[in-house]
Design a protein around this nucleic acid. Structure first.
Lengths: 200, 200, 200, 200
DNA sequence: TATGAATGAGTCTTCATTCAT
DNA sequence: AATGAATGAAGACTCATTCAT
């Protein structure tokens, strides 16, 4: 009968917890078992919740997924002091992308494999510029290094950053393709280094 | 009564047409509706063929998909004569992949954008080794060149071919990502060349 | 608004009815059309239930079949008090299987004749160990009797239970083979008794 | 144009060879891979023959199978000299059924699993008496031993042979159920011996 | 808010069989 | 006598979603 504000908020809080539990369960499944295993049933089992409850909190499966993507952590900057030598510049760039590798691992192969589709335009730096992609960081970094006379590029900067982006994409894609069973860090570092060695 | 060569080939021809129709149907679905819509039923409906017929022509769904890579216009063997100098080797490798670029263009961006999903295991050379991927060609080519003493690699051959594959994948992915509006040939050639320059 | 216990049980009751209807449909098909006709579709059609509903109630087709054995009218625990003499032990074991005979009669020859196929893996205790087969009961019973020093077996317990299972299977099979026109109880009791007499 | 009798018979001979090859292939598959693997495709592949050819020689799959059953080897008699002691009688009976085990193994689990259904009335000695089943042999043997005063049975002969038949059936069924992965000989010998020990 | 029963289209694949050649 | 292309029903099982309670 008496429904105080407090009681309502208690209920609301419980509801939010349920939603969070579902969300977390989905995240865990995605990371540990892959996208294919991400069925409503599996999510509900893992969350200890009925499937009806799922549909109470999320309109559809896609609805749930959209929340997931928004939650991505943003890149940690601060590697990028002005280099003293070309080799330092190479090291810095490699470090940026090893950091990205780390970030990919956090998200999990399963998620990345789903996310890394050419149709996913959020991957296209030409389309969406709000986000501070690593490649933007690297672009600015190389520019500064050139202006400071530390390095000289035999190619236009845009082409170089394009190549780097391509190499990085290739590495991620390959890692996904092999279901996380490739030497992600090793490949990333090596392919970038050889490329940069060919460059300056 | 008498079964002439011509009559036989008529049946064979019809068979080949059916196979091609299935092949084409899959391509169209991939282009217009995406990888997720690529079910056997959809393919057969689109091809106007019974599902049994599909399995008569293709061992499995994956089998069909891998044909898109196998069916590449056969490489001009002249590309791959033993090189006299390191630069000739680089040229040859670049040419192999420019040829691949040409093939991708033939299939179309729409197709490739749907085909290039990490979920498409027919892209994974580790999974399906029967097919003659360009990377296999290049692998053999580099080996021959090394044995002939024309080039020396500072890295294990496997790592080099891995890098090349990664770079090529990245190029294709990027091209798809930009809806075909990138300098596919230019990027492919440049990124490969710089990498190879860094190598030998 | 208020969800009383009664209302809940109404839904649960309906659910149980559905499950029973599926169960019964399978039984009927087995009786009238045989094991080969026992497809999920047939079962669902006969039960007037969607195939999704089937899988809501039973994990798998085998799961359903194994229920026929599990659902045995629960054994009177008094049967299985620790025996005072070897003869009491024999009596108990015989009684367990006379009870099983009774259960077989309830299911009917027609059903059993179709159910007793070597292809029906739900009959194989090695495959599915969750269920409480009579043989498990007997196994435990013999073990207790041995530990209590009431009986001594000249053979490993596992071999004995294997023999008993085999004899029981043979009895059921023979009964089916003769369309129910054999002395099921008589044969079961006699063959088991003579075997046990040879044992201890 | 000229079709001499000889030429015809040559063709006929080739035809018969093809048929035999198909038959043999089916037999091999049945024994080595089991009944489930016995598809027309597999048979034709193994026989090196087109599926059309199969249907030229056999009306249906069942047609082929019927040939298989007719080909079964008949039991080798001659174990059964009049025994001097009860133990010799037991040995003889066990030997008869170990021979039967051997015969089952020859036919293969796959075949037996298909054949050993209660619905298969050819297994019912009451129905079909033309064949000289092992149990008939044993029946006659026991009778002779009794008449000679070597053994005495505490039960009617009919009941004893019934028990023995039941035990044997159980052994075969169990062996099938476990896909040939049970100790067929061991179980058969042990269960029979314990039973006979309980008998005389 | 939460439950879980029910749905039915959808998944890939296998198979026995037919038929034109 | 022999080929192999084509058929389509059938197999078990999964899944996102709806709805009455």
């Amino acid at each position: 009968m008496e429904t105080t504000t407090q009681e309502l908020s208690r209920q609301q809080q419980k509801s939010r917890e349920t939603k969070a539990r579902i969300f977390q369960a989905a995240k865990t499944i995605l990371q540990e078992q892959g996208y294919e295993a991400l069925s409503i049933k599996n999510i509900c089992d893992a969350a200890g919740v009925s499937n009806g409850s799922f549909y109470h909190h999320f309109k559809t499966k896609d609805d749930l997924l959209s929340y997931y993507i928004e939650e991505q952590p943003s890149m940690d900057p601060g590697y990028l002091d002005l280099p003293a030598t070309p080799d330092e510049a190479k090291d810095a760039i490699v470090r940026v992308y090893l950091n990205y590798v780390h970030y990919c691992r956090e998200l999990g192969v399963a998620f990345m494999a789903n996310y890394y589709t050419p149709k996913n335009q959020s991957l296209n730096p030409l389309t969406r510029t709000e986000r501070s992609y690593p490649i933007v960081t690297v672009h600015d970094y190389l520019q500064k290094a050139m202006e400071a006379g530390v390095i000289t590029l035999p190619l236009p900067l845009e082409e170089v950053t394009s190549d780097i982006r391509i190499i990085v994409i290739g590495n991620v894609f390959d890692w996904c393709l092999q279901n996380g069973h490739s030497d992600f860090e090793g490949n990333m570092e090596r392919s970038l280094r050889v490329y940069l060695d060919g460059l300056f």
